[in-house]
């Protein structure tokens, strides 16, 4: 089984992210693997354990994104590839999908390509389906459970309304969610292996792709209006008294 896990590097979710002088800043907070993409790596490793094969972590990003790939290696991925090119700074999701598709082809394809549900930074949640469309492969989105039989993959999709069981012929594109299981922590051995790994860096030319003009462009960045809610603590001698006061406050706000 050949499996690719697509991951991105993002600022940690604890980071104090702000818009400053038309740029996004996050102080000295660390860059980490996109938390949703840890599920992609976890799901890929589970399938390798069940079926044998290899897991390749794939990322488009700057040189620094090698650290995110090293996290995937430390979790247990067999190898990693970074696609990095100065022409890729203004990438929208369709652009990312085209480059990922080209890199997947260059790797030689895969039986399953795992994605996260969405990125923390852009938060679009579009790239997996767009990669599937570019490659003409079946899209299995929001997957919480995977079963492979022969060249067929059957998944449980976790949607707003419940679980939907869907199957497709491999190769297929999957986006994975939390129900797949907690991402494993990197092992000591894994961390050692990852720290020694050399990660190949491919340019756009290497993957036979060109930088498309982005369709979606940002024209302004803003900080959200600061909410000046000051908490008012409701106290009283008994739960009933507190509840009575709280109920009055809630009703006075006219939100019901």
């Amino acid at each position: 089984m050949k499996i690719i896990a697509c991951i991105k590097q993002v600022p940690d979710s604890e980071a104090k992210v702000k818009a400053e002088d038309g740029k996004v800043t996050w102080g000295d907070a660390p860059l980490v693997i996109n938390p949703f993409d840890e599920y992609a790596v976890e799901g890929a490793l589970q399938q390798r354990e069940a079926l044998g094969g290899t897991v390749t972590a794939l990322c488009i990003g700057p040189e620094s994104a090698k650290d995110a790939l090293k996290h995937a290696l430390a979790m247990g991925a067999d190898d990693a590839v970074l696609v990095s090119d100065p022409a890729l700074t203004e990438l929208d999701t369709v652009g990312a999908a085209r480059v990922l598709a080209a890199a997947i082809n260059k790797i030689g394809g895969a039986d399953m390509v795992m994605f996260g549900r969405q990125t923390l930074d852009n938060g679009a949640g579009l790239t997996p389906a767009q990669t599937a469309r570019v490659l003409g492969l079946p899209m299995l989105g929001f997957v919480g459970q995977i079963k492979v039989e022969g060249d067929n993959v059957t998944v449980d999709r976790i949607t707003e309304e419940g679980r939907q069981t869907v199957s497709a012929k491999m190769p297929a594109i999957l986006s994975l969610v939390q129900s797949i299981g907690e991402p494993r922590y990197p092992s000591f051995m894994g961390i050692r292996k990852a720290s020694k790994a050399t990660i190949p860096v491919w340019s756009l030319a290497d993957v036979n792709a060109t930088a498309a003009v982005p369709v979606i462009t940002r024209i302004e960045l803003m900080n959200p209006p600061v909410q000046e809610t000051k908490v008012e603590m409701i106290t009283g001698d008994s739960p009933a008294e507190i509840a009575d006061k709280l109920a009055d406050k809630i009703l006075a706000e006219k939100v019901l």
Binding site: V231, E232, M233, P239, D244, L246, L251
Partner: peptide, 27 residues
């Protein structure tokens, strides 16, 4: 509490049923 408009420091098992009762009456 930094995000809340109203806060109660207490055991939810005591406050929530009391709040349900109070709301029932007032509504």
């Amino acid at each position: 509490f930094n995000q809340a408009r109203y806060g109660v420091v207490g055991d939810l098992f005591a406050i929530v049923p009391a709040l349900t009762e109070a709301m029932k009456k007032k509504m």
